[in-house]
């Protein structure tokens, strides 16, 4: 009897821990947990100075007032950033005219010239679509940290990172993260937010 009661108690505690630890079974990975958390409590992003592909400077906060979509890339990326670039091309073609796109590099070695490669490949042009780096390392780290972007070296001189499309509302709050393939979902949400 004691054994049965104690076993049931442990089972209940364990089940509760697993239930809590997966957000009611919805988030087995940190990526899923991050997206749930951002959707539930939108995050204000730190203000940083962006240097775009034309050499111009601009503060992230200057984008307030209109919807903004961010993605995080690096100029010499061979795979996932191409998918992200293509996703932005689609958004460029389909989003309302006031919406803005910024591809932000997390590679400290990226400069105006290297960002130009990425911009040219995807025909990105300001003011609609800026490809930018953040010169201030602390600001860059704070931005990545706040957005939940995890970047690790791939051992071949490049990086592996959790890819996504980041929707920032007109108040400058990060409200949702979408898969790179889910441009349609992002567009629907952006238009829904604006209404």
């Amino acid at each position: 009897m004691r054994a049965a009661l104690a076993t049931v108690a442990v089972a209940a505690l364990g089940a509760a821990a697993l239930w809590w630890g997966t957000d009611q079974g919805g988030a087995l990975t940190s990526e899923a947990a991050r997206r749930l958390d951002i959707a539930a409590t939108p995050r204000r992003l730190p203000d940083v100075t962006l240097h775009d592909q034309t050499g111009a400077e601009m503060a992230l906060s200057e984008y307030r007032g209109a919807p903004l979509v961010l993605e995080f890339v690096y100029a010499t990326c061979p795979d996932i950033c191409l998918t992200l670039g293509t996703a932005f091309e689609q958004l460029d073609a389909t989003l309302p005219a006031d919406a803005r796109l910024v591809s932000i590099s997390f590679d400290p070695n990226d400069d105006t010239e290297r960002l130009g490669w990425f911009a040219d490949r995807h025909r990105a042009a300001p003011p609609r679509w800026r490809v930018a780096y953040v010169a201030d390392a602390r600001g860059r780290d704070a931005l990545l940290d706040r957005a939940g972007v995890v970047v690790i070296p791939d051992g071949l001189g490049g990086f592996v990172h959790n890819a996504g499309l980041y929707l920032v509302d007109a108040d400058g709050r990060l409200t949702a993260v979408f898969d790179p393939e889910d441009t349609e979902g992002l567009r629907a949400r952006l238009i829904g937010n604006a209404r």
Binding site: R2, A6, T7, V10, A17, G21, T22, L28, T29
Partner: peptide, 22 residues
């Protein structure tokens, strides 16, 4: 002996939790 089952169940559940990628 009555503590054996709850103790071993705790082992399984704890390990399951820390094997979650999250």
């Amino acid at each position: 002996p009555w503590t054996a089952a709850p103790a071993l169940l705790a082992v399984i559940l704890t390990l399951a939790f820390w094997l979650l990628p999250r």
